[in-house]
Amino acid sequence: MLRLPIFQTKTPTNLEELLSAMSESGARLIAGGTDLLPNLKHRLDTPETLVSIDRVEELRHITWDEDARALRIGAGVTLADIAADNEVGEHFPSLVKAASLVASPLIRNMATLGGNINLDTRCRYVNQSEFWRSAIGGCLKSEGDVCHVVPKGRSCAAAMSSDCVPVLISLGATLIQVGPQGRRELALVDYYSSDGIEHTQKLVGEITTEVQIPLPAGESAAHYSKWTVRKSIDFPLLSIAMNFTLSSQGADAVIEEAIICLGVLAAKPKVLRTDKLVGLRFGDEVTASLVGELCFKHGKTLENVPYEADYRRSMLRVFGRRAIRQLADSR
C-alpha cells in the first residue's frame, strides 16, 4: 500500500480557471495521473495543490485545420482516444502505434497526450520507493547529490521515456503552450533540454494546450518501434521513430528526406543526422543496414533504465534495421 502525500485538489472547468489555479505557488498539474501519482506515492514531489484538467473540455479536441494543413490534438485527449481516432489513423499511423503501445489499455484510458509530452524523465535510481532510495542516499534527481548512472556526473542522466514524443518530433509537431506570459508556439524538438531534472522549456504556470501535426507534403512512410521487457505495461528500453519523405510510391522509391528520432537515451530525444540516407533507394538492404548503423553510432545508451547499456545499444542497430525493412515490405 502506497499513500499519497497530503495535498489539496482543484478541478477547474475551463481554461481560464485552470490557468489561474496553476499560477498559484505550490500548484502542480495532474492530467491522467498515471505517472504523476506513482511518483507522488514514492515522494518524488510533494505539491501543495493538484490541479486536475479532467473537466476542461477545451483541451479535449481532435480537429482538422484546413488552413494550416495540420491536425490539432488537445493536450487532454487520452491515448486510447488517439489510438482509436480515424483521422489520426489515416494520416499518422506511427502516432497511433506509439499511443497504442503505451503501458496497458487501462492506463491508455486515463493517460493524456499532454501528459505523455510532459512525462517526467525516468531512471532506475529515481523511480523507486522512498525506502529503496534511502538505502543508496538518493541521487541528483531525488534526495542526494551524486549520480549513480554516470559516476562523478554533475548533471542528471534520467531518460525521456515517452512513446509519443519521438514520433511527434519525427512528424514535425508544434507545441502550443499557454501561461501567464501568454500563448506561444514552439517546435516540439526545441521543448526538451539535456538536463534530466529540468528537462523541458516549460515556464512557471504554463500549460500545454495543444499539439499541431502538419500533414506530410508528399509521399511519406513513418514508423515507431519500441522494445520493452514485457509486452505490456513497461516503459521502453529503447524507442525509434522514423519518418521518410519519398520520391514515389512503391518499393523502388528514393529517400528525399529522413527524420530519425531516438528516445530513452537521456533527457533529450536524439534527432539523428541523416544526410547519408538521402538519395538511397528506400527498399534496399544497404539502406536498412545504414539506418541500423546510424542508430547504433549515435545512440549512446546509459545504465539509466533496465538492461545493460551495451545490450540496448546493440539492439538499437537491430530495431533500426528491422523498422525500415518492415516499412519497405509493407508498401
Partner: peptide, 20 residues
C-alpha cells in the same frame, strides 16, 4: 480496476476529486 463513466480505469491512480 473499476469503471468510471463506462470506461475501465485504475482507481488507485484516480483522485477522489476526479471521480466526483
Amino acid at each position: 480496476t473499476v469503471q468510471v463513466d463506462g470506461k475501465a480505469k485504475l482507481s488507485c491512480l484516480t483522485l477522489a476529486a476526479q471521480a466526483n
